Amino acid sequence: MTSIRKKLVTDVQANKVTYGKGNVKKYIVVHETDNTRSGADADAHARLQSNGNSRSASWHYTVDDKEAVQSFEHVWRCWAAGSNKGNNEGIQVEICVNADGNYLKAMQNAAELVAKIMKDEGISIGNVVQHNHFSGKNCPRNMREGKISWSQFITMIKNASGDVQQPAPIADNNKYRVLTGTYATKQAAENTQDVLKHRFGWVAYIEPDGAKWRVKTGTFTGMATAQAGANKIKTAKLAQVANVVAA
């Protein structure tokens, strides 16, 4: 997880550049600073806010390739999303695009930050939105132009939060039996059958195979279960060969 450092704006300053407290915290709104100057990193933007931003703008976090800096607690309704709904219900995250920074790493750090905010505030992935969602502004511009696509960024968030969808296991409800190799005498086969029935608690049968004998189990559901049964027979040294066959 990328480091998160607090450099909080004072309440006096916050009241000048926000709608005050009472944020509903329903959305996480993703922005890019669009400031490509060298040195325009997270710390620089956080200092801008703490020193008194001359612009009528504010945001909760700035994140670059090294860290995330928090300027406002989530309760503040910052001026960033371009609409009352976005400002009153959103936690605003600005991603740095400074020329001397690593854009990909900044995106990865932003994804980790967003995943943490989602967990802390109970916000769903469906409510992680672009600035464009509320105002129509072309922001986050680089992402919207495909430098790293929005869908890729969402995947990065899911990876960071452990929310990657795993394929559902395919249920195997087929029936199988385990068939041993041959025994030279019926008595040897009966000895194995006795162990399977009375020690393992399985159903077991003896079948002739020419002049020799085999032992066949009752049915197992699923190949994995049947294979575990075959391994158990071999581990117990009841047979050198134990094959799984369709029932």
Rank of each mutant, 00 (worst) to 15 (best):
S124H: 02
G22A: 11
Y61S: 09
A111N: 06
E112W: 07
W76D: 01
G39F: 02
A99G: 07
S71K: 11
N51P: 06
A99E: 13
A44N: 07
N51L: 07
G90E: 04
S124E: 13
N51I: 06
A110H: 05
E94L: 12
N84M: 12
Q108G: 15
Q70P: 04
D34T: 09
S71L: 10
A57H: 07
V29R: 02
M107R: 02
S71G: 15
G90A: 06
W59P: 00
H31R: 05
H60Q: 12
A40G: 01
W76L: 01
T36I: 07
R77D: 06
R77M: 13
S58P: 05
K66P: 00
V97F: 01
S50T: 15
A40K: 00
K25R: 10
A99S: 15
L104Q: 10
Q92V: 07
E121S: 08
K105V: 15
V30S: 02
N51W: 08
F72W: 05
D34Y: 06
V114Y: 01
V24E: 15
K105Y: 12
M118A: 11
G90D: 03
A115V: 06
D43R: 12
I125V: 14
W59T: 09
Q108T: 15
I95Y: 02
N98L: 03
A81N: 10
Q70M: 15
Y103W: 13
G90R: 00
M107A: 05
N109K: 02
K25G: 03
K21F: 06
I123V: 14
T33A: 08
C96D: 05
D34S: 10
I91L: 08
K116N: 12
G20V: 10
N53V: 05
H74Y: 13
D41A: 05
L104A: 11
A106N: 08
S54H: 13
K21C: 11
V114F: 06
K85H: 03
Q49N: 14
C78R: 01
K119F: 13
A106L: 04
Y27W: 14
E121Y: 10
A44R: 13
N84S: 14
G39Q: 14
E112M: 10
I95A: 03
V30H: 04
Q70R: 15
N35L: 00
H45T: 01
S54L: 07
A106P: 00
F72V: 05
H74P: 01
L48F: 09
G90S: 09
A57F: 11
N53E: 11
K21P: 03
S54C: 04
N102S: 14
R55G: 03
M107L: 13
Y103K: 10
H74K: 07
Q49C: 08
N102Y: 08
K66N: 12
V24Y: 12
V114H: 08
I95C: 07
K85G: 02
Q92I: 09
K66Y: 10
A68I: 05
I125L: 15
S50M: 10
Q92H: 13
A44Y: 15
F72Y: 09
N88A: 14
M118L: 03
H31N: 04
N88Y: 11
N35F: 01
M107W: 01
C78S: 11
N51Q: 11
R77F: 04
R37T: 12
S83L: 04
Y61H: 13
A40L: 04
V114S: 06
